[in-house]
Design a protein around this nucleic acid. Structure first.
Lengths: 124, 124
DNA sequence: AGGTTGCATCAACGAACGTCAATACAGGCC
DNA sequence: GGCCTGTATTGACGTTCGTTGATGCAACCT
């Protein structure tokens, strides 16, 4: 249940050029576009926000997410799947319920891509 | 030719909560989703990259952008229009040619939205 | 004026997307 | 076992999106 994400944002710092660094090749543009497209829907953006609001290591049960929208349960499940396939979140089933969390560092790497070579503190 | 962008990312720091700060309201989610959706296409992402690569205050002529893709000229024009409507870029006609540039600060504000209240150095 | 070049707009098409009702699957409880 | 709850998947529908050829508009050049 957690083996189909992209891992686009997770490249090493060396190859992670950034939007403004150089004219972005076709392949990398296609991969990154999937991530932005995943965030390009109001419902998915709110889902991301609700999950991310739990902070590092925080989780949210689907049973808390679904009632926050005036949408059917399959629709929410579909959006969560897209966010997962974009490599933004992951999930785990625990008993009856399924919990989602934001993959660590993804948002920071995305932000770093937008701002260019800002040499963020978290060196690896 | 430059009067229909959004201005979604340009809110004051006070009301610019960030993705992880709190569960994002419906309206703001809808506005921000438009920006991410604009970036959620490989062609538009490459266009943004090509324009942003010119740096602060840099411009690119459409006549340089179009031949970089194996797409018709109307298609490129269409994508540029979407980027402009998303409040990411602007343009100006000078003589025969039209020049595009990235609206200053937009990428930084978008990045700040993703990383949360990181108190970036450029306080205003 | 007429002709040419650069870019935007229009109208139309197929493909992808967001949504739902119905159904299937997983786990707890009796 | 059988039933119930929580979540994912399927199949179908209408809408939006990406693309194109045709056309329109603006600016230069004789």
């Amino acid at each position: 249940m957690s083996k189909q994400e992209l891992e686009v944002i997770g490249q090493d710092a060396a190859c992670c050029a950034g939007l403004s660094a150089a004219p972005l090749g076709e392949d990398r543009a296609a991969e990154l576009a999937k991530v932005f497209k995943a965030l390009g829907d109001p419902v998915r953006l709110r889902l991301m926000s609700m999950i991310a609001s739990r902070g590092e290591g925080g989780e949210v049960c689907v049973c808390e997410l679904t009632p926050a929208f005036e949408l059917s349960q399959p629709t929410i499940s579909h959006h969560l799947k897209l966010l997962r396939q974009a490599g933004l979140i992951d999930c785990e089933r625990r008993g009856t319920w399924v919990y989602y969390w934001v993959l660590p560092g993804v948002l920071d790497r995305l932000a770093a891509f937008l701002t260019g070579p800002q040499t963020a503190g978290a060196g690896a």
